[in-house]
Design a binder for these strands. Structure first.
Lengths: 141, 141
DNA sequence: AATACGCGCAACTGCTACTGTTACAAAATA
DNA sequence: TATTTTGTAACAGTAGCAGTTGCGCGTATT
């Protein structure tokens, strides 16, 4: 994967957390399960913490935990927390030299904005309990 | 831009072509107008030719032309011709080791497929006449 | 036939973004 | 105090893409 690796890692981890919200997990264990590096895990989960989805603690009994009930965390929350946007939107500081560019930008950005809203609406319909799987394996649960 | 540069170049060029479908344009002129390189133009427009949207000819009076009426070329045609996909979809040859990954992939890919369809539907509603601008400037028209 | 013109294509060079890795400081606990 | 775990900065490796150069091929002009 390329663009979705952060999102995948985040959702995968949240899926496991949704099973056992009380358990505190350390980044090393999460990384081992996901086949990546603890620092990468901290980077990604750090974004989720900034968005208020997770809490982290240092020290002996430290690690990562859900900041609220799994029912109250949707896929849209995660998507927004990671700043993933389908259409690279923001600061469109480009000069539109000719009228074709004007018309083009107007049409395309309108469509993209609508699609982005559609995506967010669909992602909002699913919370992370829905992706917690069923069997009992993984990360010591 | 990053991911949209090919799409922008393609649509920009088609917008101009929609104004004067008879005129044949050479890649050097198109590149000069778009602020890029003739080879880049040929690469991008080459994809549109493979999709049957454009024709190109060598030699003295050679260059690029629309393969059919501008009313019959929609933004969706261009999007598909360039193989742009919102969700990197195709060969999903990844091992889904745990049930969370299963559930996650199922949910996310379903949402993404639906959004992709939404996008294509919206893009299909606009043909390249709509992005041809209005004023008379650019590329010698 | 010879020449000029424009596309087709391959190869190479930066540039950018991202993941992975190492190293170290800060916080919390035994 | 010593240990554990996060937080963060710095750097290497990788992949994708735009840009560039060079050359071959087809086509129109002369």
């Amino acid at each position: 994967m390329k663009r979705n690796s952060r999102l995948s890692l985040a959702l995968h981890t949240l899926g496991h957390m949704a099973r056992d919200p009380e358990q505190t997990r350390k980044s090393a264990d999460i990384a081992a399960h996901a086949g990546t590096n603890p620092v990468v895990v901290r980077r990604v989960l750090g974004s989720l913490r900034e968005a208020g989805l997770l809490v982290s603690e240092s020290g002996h009994a430290g690690g990562w935990r859900l900041a609220r009930a799994p029912q109250q965390i949707t896929l849209a929350d995660v998507y927004l927390a990671l700043d993933e946007r389908l259409v690279a939107p923001q600061a469109d500081t480009e000069e539109h030299n000719c009228s074709v560019e004007h018309a083009l930008h107007a049409r395309v950005s309108k469509v993209m904005a609508e699609v982005e809203q559609t995506l967010l609406a669909k992602l909002s319909e699913t919370n992370i309990l829905a992706i917690r799987g069923s069997a009992d394996e993984g990360m010591g649960e």
